[in-house]
Computed example of a mutant assay.
Amino acid sequence: MNRRLRVAAYAVCVRDERILLARGTADDGTKEWTLPGGGMDHGEDPLDTVVREVEEETGYLTEMTALLGVDSKRSRYTGRLGGVTDFQRLRILYEGRITGGDLRPEVGGSTDLAAWHPLDAVSSLVRVGVVDVGLRLWRERPAAGRLAHNG
């Protein structure tokens, strides 16, 4: 069995009861909202990753004000040639504050739109799971930076 690890860093930026999200496209073509952030380059510090990714995806300059926590998720999938891969996502989540820049969509990247959404409307959005994880970490602030998983 193949094993694959992806380490990524994301920002939870909330102001005036609104959260900053970026929109990407799933493999099946569905448009989904996600937290701004993404994969860490080899040798890159996670804090540098999240600041870079937020600017790329939203146009905003940010500073991270708190480490909210770490989330790990595993799944298995079968590749095109039939091999099974055990895929682990390690996601580092920060609280971020906008310090400059102007909201704009990413050009030539993995997202096509960035926007502020009311916190009470997030549950009605088509979104990836990291949005809910990030909001829970932001709201609950677990001392160990890890959420209790249901199920």
Score class of each variant (00 low, 15 high):
1 M>R: 10
2 N>R: 11
3 R>E: 13
3 R>L: 06
3 R>V: 06
5 L>D: 10
5 L>H: 09
7 V>P: 02
7 V>H: 06
7 V>M: 11
9 A>D: 00
10 Y>L: 07
10 Y>P: 00
10 Y>K: 04
12 V>R: 02
13 C>D: 01
13 C>F: 01
14 V>T: 11
15 R>T: 15
15 R>L: 13
15 R>A: 14
15 R>Y: 00
19 I>T: 04
20 L>M: 11
24 G>Y: 01
24 G>R: 05
25 T>N: 05
25 T>S: 07
26 A>R: 09
28 D>V: 11
30 T>W: 09
30 T>R: 13
30 T>N: 08
33 W>V: 00
34 T>F: 05
34 T>R: 08
34 T>W: 04
37 G>P: 00
39 G>D: 13
45 D>E: 14
46 P>I: 00
46 P>N: 06
48 D>E: 15
49 T>E: 01
49 T>A: 09
49 T>M: 04
49 T>L: 03
49 T>W: 00
50 V>M: 00
52 R>Q: 08
52 R>G: 12
53 E>V: 04
53 E>M: 07
55 E>H: 11
57 E>P: 03
57 E>N: 04
60 Y>H: 08
60 Y>W: 09
64 M>N: 05
66 A>E: 14
68 L>A: 08
69 G>Y: 03
70 V>Q: 15
71 D>R: 01
72 S>C: 09
72 S>Y: 12
73 K>E: 13
74 R>G: 14
75 S>L: 15
75 S>E: 14
76 R>T: 15
77 Y>K: 11
77 Y>E: 15
77 Y>F: 15
78 T>E: 14
78 T>H: 10
80 R>W: 14
80 R>T: 13
81 L>T: 14
82 G>N: 12
84 V>A: 13
85 T>R: 13
85 T>F: 10
87 F>C: 12
87 F>V: 06
88 Q>N: 11
89 R>A: 07
91 R>N: 08
91 R>K: 12
92 I>E: 03
95 E>H: 06
96 G>P: 04
96 G>F: 00
96 G>M: 01
97 R>T: 15
97 R>C: 09
98 I>E: 03
100 G>N: 13
100 G>Y: 06
100 G>W: 01
101 G>A: 09
102 D>F: 11
103 L>F: 04
106 E>C: 13
107 V>C: 10
109 G>W: 04
112 D>H: 12
112 D>Y: 02
112 D>Q: 08
113 L>R: 12
113 L>T: 09
114 A>Q: 04
114 A>C: 10
115 A>D: 08
118 P>C: 07
119 L>T: 01
120 D>H: 07
120 D>N: 11
124 S>R: 06
124 S>K: 06
125 L>S: 07
125 L>D: 11
125 L>A: 08
125 L>M: 13
127 R>F: 00
127 R>M: 03
128 V>K: 13
128 V>S: 11
129 G>M: 06
129 G>S: 10
130 V>G: 07
131 V>N: 00
132 D>K: 03
132 D>R: 04
133 V>A: 02
133 V>Q: 01
133 V>E: 02
134 G>Q: 10
136 R>E: 09
136 R>M: 14
137 L>Q: 01
137 L>G: 02
138 W>K: 01
140 E>K: 12
140 E>S: 07
141 R>T: 10
143 A>D: 03
145 G>T: 03
145 G>W: 03
147 L>V: 00
148 A>G: 14
148 A>Q: 12
148 A>W: 04
149 H>E: 12
149 H>F: 09
150 N>G: 14
